[in-house]
Design a protein around this nucleic acid. Sequence first.
DNA 1: TCTTAATACTACCTTTTAGTAGTATTTAAT
DNA 2: ATTAAATACTACTAAAAGGTAGTATTAAGA
Lengths: 136, 136
Amino acid sequence: MELSNTTQYAIRMLSYIANSHGKLQNAKELSTILTIPYKFLTKILTQLVKSEFIISIRGREGGYKLAKPASEIMVLDILNQFGDIVKENQCILGIGTCDSENKCSLHDQWVIPKEMMIKMFAQTSLENLEGDEFKI
Amino acid sequence: MELSNTTQYAIRMLSYIANSHGKLQNAKELSTILTIPYKFLTKILTQLVKSEFIISIRGREGGYKLAKPASEIMVLDILNQFGDIVKENQCILGIGTCDSENKCSLHDQWVIPKEMMIKMFAQTSLENLEGDEFKI
DNA sequence: TCTTAATACTACCTTTTAGTAGTATTTAAT
DNA sequence: ATTAAATACTACTAAAAGGTAGTATTAAGA
Ligand code: SF4
Ligand code: SF4
């Protein structure tokens, strides 16, 4: 019941990149600042480039910056990209997919917190995560 | 952001055992009814015996039944037993532990759905999961 | 042009989770 | 007593997630 390391890292990286408002950030610095293993971090950054959350500038003086406004990148998009799914119709007990006609025993208790969580992830953008008062 | 297979299986097994109201259930039947691999299921059942959710009767005509009333086994207890933790003070972004003085950027958005989820798991007992209308 | 600092690619290793196999032990029924 | 049907134990294998290593490519700057 928690986000995967990869997803956590991705959110923190994107969050930090968003907070630098267009100034290029390079992998080496990101690695030391966020204390994420360098090689693992670059792997994730490349995925983030391919999935068009960020753009990369190669070569000396290169780095990464957001590919679109922070307000347009939702946390839910990040979760989805890394398969850390919070799908509407996914059974919390793993009994296939579900609808309210064919529900598992936890359905009635789970449906409200689930909706709440999904809604929160869907409505929260990187812009909402900005601020200097947070742990990074 | 989902329960591990083991936890899902454990909840379904316990739920089914609870629903048989004291009648012994054996592993072979549980395996076919719940479509959980036999050997994996018995491994989990043994853990459930050791952690005192159920008691086992060995030998021919043996099987499993709840060790205490269904109303006293909370879903949260099961999650905790299998390390599928929903800890109060665990950072959703994996930045150590947290308190409201030292928060991560998702804190303010996460705190409400998190509380809701924990509360739900803590208040839901196996008794609440009973009923014939559910997928098993 | 050469060096250097950056990203990209390919392949591998490690750890954790999921699942399997085989044997030993227990106990009711015959 | 013997058999059969059940749980318990030990050890292994497979797949997924997390992480590492080395090399290739790109481009600014001296
Ligand atoms: S809880 Fe209900 S909605 Fe959620 S998964 Fe189970 S059946 Fe589906
Ligand atoms: S969100 Fe807040 S409470 Fe939750 S973990 Fe991050 S800092 Fe802690």
